[in-house]
Every structure is written in structure tokens, then in C-alpha cells.
């Protein structure tokens, strides 16, 4: 099952630009569609849609969420093995492995290097084999 886009879509392209798995196709001002084979139901498109034109797998329309309220990954460095699975999963390019602090420093770990790029898809947290990533909404973090 996958998310879908309803006729309310006005073709603003916001969802297609943010989709972390490039599952959304469409032309500007034209109706967009979601490739069901690729959709991972992360909900990023729904949160970004000003027209609430995205419906979940059951067909329920989903509300827009202001960007400041999107969830962000929080890292438990002590659990991280720096295996890079999250960095690869993050197509937005928001994550990186930290640099060594001195020559021979092996205590490096994944971190949110570019918060602005993060779309809150949670693919990093889902893929992390070490459970080192938790998604947090901003109020929880605060």
C-alpha cells in the first residue's frame, strides 16, 4: 500500500521536490502522482502539501504540518557504529559521519549535519541497525 494524491492537487511540486525516495512525478501546475512501488509512506509529501491533497493508504486525507514542527532525528552517539546506513538512506543529504577530532580518533558517529535539509522522513531511524536514532518533534526536543 502507498500514499496517493487526490484531485485537490494544484501541481505546486513541493511534494515531488521533498520526497526522499523520488517517488512523486508530475509537471508544474499539473496533477502529481505517487509511484506505489516506491512510496515508503513517510508522510513528507502530506506534511508539505498546502492543499491537503495527499491521502494515506486507507484513503484518509492527511493534514499539512508547518515545517518547524516536522520531526528531526536525534542521535545516541554511544550506540552508533558509524556504519553509514543512515547517511546513505538520507537522500536529502542532511546527515554525515562526524570528523575525527584528532589523528587516530575512532570515536566518530553519525549526526544531523545540515538540519535545514532534513525533511523528517525517518528513513534513517528505520534503517539504523543499532537503534541509535530516534525521531523527535521539536516540542519534545525543546
Amino acid at each position: 500500500m502507498a500514499y496517493s494524491i487526490t484531485e485537490l492537487c494544484e501541481g505546486c511540486t513541493a511534494c515531488a521536490r521533498l520526497c526522499p525516495v523520488a517517488a512523486i512525478a508530475g509537471t508544474p501546475k499539473g496533477m502529481h502522482t505517487i509511484n506505489p512501488k516506491r512510496c515508503v509512506e513517510c508522510g513528507v509529501c502530506a506534511r508539505a502539501c498546502t492543499k491537503s491533497a495527499v491521502a494515506d493508504a486507507a484513503g484518509n486525507p492527511l493534514p499539512r504540518v508547518p515545517r518547524k514542527d516536522w520531526p528531526k532525528p536525534a542521535f545516541a552517539a554511544e550506540n552508533c557504529s558509524a556504519c553509514g546506513i543512515c547517511v546513505q538512506a538520507c537522500t536529502a543529504g542532511a546527515l554525515a559521519i562526524s570528523l575525527p577530532q584528532f589523528r587516530g580518533d575512532l570515536r566518530v558517529s553519525a549526526y544531523l549535519a545540515n538540519e535545514k535539509k532534513c525533511v523528517g522522513c525517518a528513513l534513517c531511524a528505520q534503517d539504523c541497525p543499532m537503534d541509535a536514532i530516534r525521531m523527535q518533534t521539536p516540542e519534545v526536543a525543546a
Partner: peptide, 18 residues
């Protein structure tokens, strides 16, 4: 190599050895 040239170590995806 580690003392004079290495900038950092890296690894294949899913590898903790790096």
C-alpha cells in the same frame, strides 16, 4: 600512511570496521 597522509577513515555502507 596514517601518520602523514590520512585525513579520516571511511567504509562501505553498513560496515562498523571502516
Amino acid at each position: 600512511l596514517a601518520e602523514t597522509r590520512l585525513t579520516r577513515n571511511s567504509g562501505c555502507v553498513s560496515c562498523p570496521i571502516r
